[in-house]
Design a protein around this nucleic acid. Structure first.
Lengths: 168, 168
DNA sequence: CCAAGATAGTTGATGAATCAACTATCGTCA
DNA sequence: TGACGATAGTTGATTCATCAACTATCTTGG
């Protein structure tokens, strides 16, 4: 529900949709194109030269910051905004390559911990310079400090807007 | 080259990587999480209730604004920042559903035009209210006018940064 | 005019994402 | 205690994206 709501336009016309004005449309399209090109370019930077993909990199970053370099699957899924299923498959692949291992969660026999191995940490260390350099070139250094700060604030709001209203 | 460059750290250490400071890192992570959640939520809004996926919607929008509701495959790929291959497959699927048709390009026998059908236009009209409502809720109405404007300007710069520096 | 290279688009194989269905464990309330 | 719903995670089928290889046409320099 929610986003689906505005679709009851069949009974008596287009209803009360508030379209975007020029400026809004412009900003929205810039956002769309910018994110698309940004993530494509960043992904390319990882594919050609770095030992882990962008998604794997973010997963390793989360683990590297967790106590014991360990995080439950569910916590990892939340942090990375990934579906459980997708995380399972991703961790499968990374485990095969020896970057992480699965261990049982002590207190809860349903739970599975994902633990970064030394090889995983090495891969992270290996990838970090190229990653950061790319993020800098594509985002941080492309903007003024104010723009970057505003971007951060704005995207925090957007994340909130997207996180909450699944229901209601 | 370029993003790949910073990976020659094997000979004498970490080299001269400029890491991100606190604020930069914060902004970057907000950007990452925000975009991720935004596109997931917007995609969901399309999946549950709207007749076309988000990607198909954008394709139809481009066609709807082109003269004759027609665009060459290559132009479409550029506008949408899609690979040729991906566009071919996407148009395959849409053509099977009758949303677009392929026709030869008059002057150039290599070329293929993608033409929106009436059914395609109807699907666009059908999807538009729900789409716009979702974009509003998730982005436009979540921000102040200034934030949105700055976001647009910033992302235009990001798009530039990502578009150019493939080479060099 | 023609050979070489560029451009346009497709194809099919491989790998990744998604979805629904499933097992297992946990928590709680009667 | 034991039944029921919620939570944790996996599985396998399907759908989609990606990549390299390929055909066909066009363009340009000699």
């Amino acid at each position: 529900m929610g986003a689906t709501r505005a679709r009851e336009r069949d009974d008596d016309g287009r209803a009360d949709v508030r379209w975007l004005d020029e400026k809004q449309q412009w900003a929205w399209r810039r956002f769309l194109e910018g994110t698309s090109r940004f993530f494509e370019a960043l992904g390319d930077a990882h594919d050609e030269g770095l030992p882990v993909t962008l998604g794997e990199y973010h997963l390793l970053v989360q683990l590297s910051e967790a106590p014991g370099r360990t995080l439950r699957m569910s916590a990892l899924a939340d942090f990375l905004a990934l579906s459980r299923s997708r995380l399972t498959h991703t961790v499968d692949r990374m485990e095969r390559r020896g970057l992480v291992v699965r261990t049982p969660v002590p207190g809860d026999r349903r739970g599975v911990n994902c633990v970064m191995t030394d090889a995983g940490f090495a891969a992270l260390v290996d990838a970090a310079p190229g990653h950061v350099t790319a993020v800098r070139r594509l985002l941080v250094d492309a903007l003024t400090d104010e723009e970057l700060a505003t971007l951060g604030r704005a995207m925090a709001k957007v994340a909130d807007a997207a996180r909450g209203p699944v229901e209601s």
